[in-house]
Design a protein around this nucleic acid. Structure first.
Lengths: 245, 245
DNA sequence: TGACCCTAATAAGTACGACATATTGCGGAG
DNA sequence: CTCCGCAATATGTCGTACTTATTAGGGTCA
């Protein structure tokens, strides 16, 4: 699982970043409310003010909070959060994202990934395309084994963004990975991977390998549409649990 | 200029974040190389280690550097940088992005903005659409005044992303704004705004206001294509200056 | 009574000094 | 020549003291 997130990480301040970050993203600390004072956080976490301050600076760098003199440190509105930041996305995961955010993620995928497929078909680096082919082959070998299938699936979709040759598309690997992970968890409730999963992905790869830009785009759009169709009935019931492990 | 960046900001540590961030992004501190030791940075900036450490944590949170015990703090490969982070983008601006990165930005715009136009046409909040209309009207009034035109232009494109109703599309306001700002600077070399600028933007707005999704998408794609066509001759000569203000 | 200014309290910002800990490279023993 | 262990190094953590911006509240004057 080649992740790019940095928090949670070893070290005291990293733990604090994760704890507070999770509490904010999960809504436990409400948007617009004030964090406890630094000294109070020191007592709560049993750490020095140095560690607390470093954690606050990290969270502020990701747009979650805004420290100000005398007023204290306030949680910024969600629109100000760096939602595409790998860490911020990761902190969403335990709560399952929620139907609205998942829908946004799917729309982003439906927009980006077909374009990425087209670019990869047009100018994709052969080495990258080989990795895509390997991922497809692993999907075939995985059969109905969910773990192997999902792993190969992620490798394919992320690899596609890298193969697009666009550094900004590559940045969207985190949200795509997050969306896939969340989708897997939902799909498991209705019984494992789709039977046609391998076939529709292979169609994308073959179009890219054949340098057929239009077909690559269309095939990829179909993959996303299939995922959206499958998820639609599952994601409508909004989950209420905030205590989920 | 409604910005969402946080650095440069008041305060000592904010200055350090900006200085080092700029040096890394501009290449003055090479990728893969080590930053000076914290104590040495203290002397150089004339600050305490506290401020230096907070700055390092902020830059690490944005993926630029990776501190490690005993080894020191190393500049991470560019692929690890959070290129969509508003601050990281802003730190690119003084160097003019460079042709490759600008091309990536344009591809991102060409992918995202037509989709955003379609979504805005489908379900855009009337209040947001009104803002779009106001921006269009300002573009008309601006005539050939570059400053007014560019301001309205940015308001239109950013407003469109907000009107899409997708929180992740909204996150891409920063890169879009960055791309527009960079484009303006290049276009000025070949003589101000395009004459048909207002007309092609107005076409997008009218399609959205008429809730015509297909026309909105097509009109927006045309706007981006026009911008790309106009920039193509200007952005090929790679700028050499790193000393820019 | 109401508006205004000044003061004091507050919480983040900065600074300095010390120690802890992980990691790497070097040198000696086998 | 290999391997083990020690020492050097740079970040990580801690504690305390002081500074500064900001705001709330009280007191004064019109």
């Amino acid at each position: 699982m080649p992740d790019d997130r940095a928090y949670p990480s070893g070290g005291v301040h990293g733990q604090v970043v994760y704890q507070i970050g999770r509490q904010i993203v999960s809504g436990e600390i409400a948007v617009g409310s004030d964090l406890p004072r630094e000294v109070e956080l020191c007592e709560r976490f049993g750490t020095s003010r140095q560690a607390i301050r470093e954690a606050i600076k990290v969270l502020a760098a990701k747009g979650l909070i805004e420290p100000r003199r005398r007023r204290g440190t306030r949680v910024r509105p969600r629109a100000a959060w760096n939602l595409l930041d790998p860490d911020v996305l990761l902190w969403h995961a335990p709560d399952g994202f929620g139907p609205d955010f998942l829908a946004d993620l799917l729309e982003l995928r439906a927009t980006i990934e077909p374009a990425a497929a087209e670019l990869a078909a047009r100018r994709g680096d052969p080495a990258r395309l080989a990795e895509l082919g390997a991922a497809i082959e692993d999907m075939r070998l995985a059969g109905l084994d969910p773990v192997r299938f999902y792993d190969a699936d992620i490798r394919f979709h992320v690899g596609l963004l890298l193969a697009s040759g666009n550094s900004l598309f590559a940045q969207l690997a985190s949200p795509v990975r997050a969306a896939l992970t969340a989708s897997f968890r939902l799909q498991e409730r209705i019984g494992g991977p789709q039977e046609n999963g391998y076939a529709i992905h292979a169609a994308v790869y073959e179009a890219i390998a054949a340098r057929d830009t239009a077909r690559a785009r269309a095939a990829m759009a179909f993959v996303i549409e299939a995922a959206a169709t499958e998820l639609r009935p599952v994601m409508t019931p909004a989950p209420e649990s905030t205590t989920g492990a």
